[in-house]
Design a protein around this nucleic acid. Structure first.
Lengths: 257, 257
DNA sequence: AAGTGGTCTAGACCACACC
DNA sequence: GTGTGGTCTAGACCACTTA
């Protein structure tokens, strides 16, 4: 009835299900078990490790979630072909990002107006014509230099208390992050040449390559905001380190060169 | 002793742990439970749903993995503040990507040579001076137009059978994906202006903004390959749709404009 | 028909933060 | 001390694929 055959006796190792997971992962990463290989059945592993099936199950479930194996209900579990195509990227909150670098952060509101949704707004945000949109542009500075230019639309009807935010001093993204509960988001990342307006506001030459990040955010199916951000190409890089071991929680960071 | 209080009687609903998860997720997404809120204890939920604690545990564990809640061992489970900062991005295998668009794919090897690792190679790939590097450049076409330019280094010692690959006809990335078991990777995404060489090879004007993707790949701790790819900025966008509900498995795709 | 993974149960012991 | 989540057990029934 004592369930910890090992853990009560030995030092203080990681949980058994994690050890099982790591063991299998190591064999997959090393290539010992290559794609298509059928890993031992739950029943076999449970004998091998002297544990209950649910413990093995937890390990395999986790490997499946990470994309390392594929579980086929009546056939077994198989090593998947690698798909390095996906990576968890950090899309930074600019203010936090700059502060994290120990640079002085400054924010500047360039323009702000409230109006009815235009055709473009409706396409972008899928809101009714009667919706009210807050449209603004602002800049973020790292030290003395413009770090990013931001153009944002906010669906006022979805976030009525935006009126309480002082957007002349507080970045809209930061305010929204603090005050809007939860959301899903879509990102698009592309490279563009700075036009005259963007170049002038970012203090770079016309034509300089910029990383442009478009993000749309929803809460419970309703669009809340759409934002387009330009970063001078030489200032910002999106970085990700991706290890299958932690696919879900892969940590990433933005860096400067 | 009949464990499926609902499932044996009713139609064929989703597993109970998923329903529990969805119920809680809905309340978080809608804002009913806002960040910091302490959700019911496992014990309460298990009474509410009339199930065992492990079933509730599975639901909460999954929510925690997705980043929606935070579990504090002796305090309870709390709704987390949103962190839209991270997103699962698709870094496409170019050949697959082009074919998926129903465009004709063509590959062209520009240069190929084998040599000892240079200082730059060693910094990039962390290999000993004696390592042999395969250094190549190639182009990928979508229909008649150059779609991407690729510069790649391969650590021959780690992938000796690369010799069997006919790199004049087969893209190295595709070959590696097929033949190298499993790996971790690091990506860096940035925007650069095309220099004369890049512009000429991509058939664009000098200075055109390009999306530049750097990837390094390891297997079992040893670097295998490093690749730098340029995409004309107007041809390629990296897209991701991210819902907290499926953080781990978020689907994403690359798109053209 | 055998055997797989998917799901679930009704308990258990543990460490430890908080009360 | 109480009560939390973390972990684990030793079973169970199920649908269904594969052999």
């Amino acid at each position: 009835m004592d369930q910890n055959n090992d853990r009560t006796r030995t030092a203080r190792p990681s949980p058994l299900h994690q050890r099982i997971r790591s063991d299998i992962e190591a064999r997959i990463l090393s290539g010992e078990w290559s794609p298509g290989y059928r890993i031992p059945f739950e029943h076999q592993l449970m004998v091998e490790y002297g544990c209950a099936r649910m413990t093995v199950n937890k390990a395999l479930y986790s490997l499946a979630e990470a994309g390392l194996i594929e579980r086929r209900p009546r056939a077994g579990s198989f090593v998947r072909r690698p798909t390095v195509q996906s990576a968890v990227l950090a899309i930074p909150d600019i203010k936090a990002e700059i502060l994290a670098r120990n640079e002085a952060y400054r924010y500047e509101l360039l323009s702000l107006r409230k109006r009815l949704a235009s055709k473009g707004d409706r396409d972008l945000l899928d809101v009714p014509p009667a919706a009210t949109i807050l449209h603004l542009r602002c800049r973020h500075f790292a030290g003395p230099r413009p770090f990013a230019l931001e153009e944002r639309r906010i669906v006022v009807d979805e976030v009525p208390n935006i009126a309480e935010a002082d957007l002349r001093t507080e970045p809209p993204g930061t305010w929204l992050l603090q005050h809007v509960p939860w959301h899903s988001a879509e990102h698009q990342i592309s490279a563009v040449n700075a036009d005259a307006a963007v170049a002038s506001l970012l203090g770079i030459r016309i034509g300089t390559a910029c990383l442009m990040v478009d993000r749309r955010t929803w809460r419970a199916g309703a669009a809340i905001t759409a934002v387009r951000t330009w970063f001078p190409g030489d200032l910002q890089k999106l970085v990700t380190r991706f290890a299958p071991s932690s696919a879900a929680g892969a940590v990433s960071a933005a860096e400067t060169r």
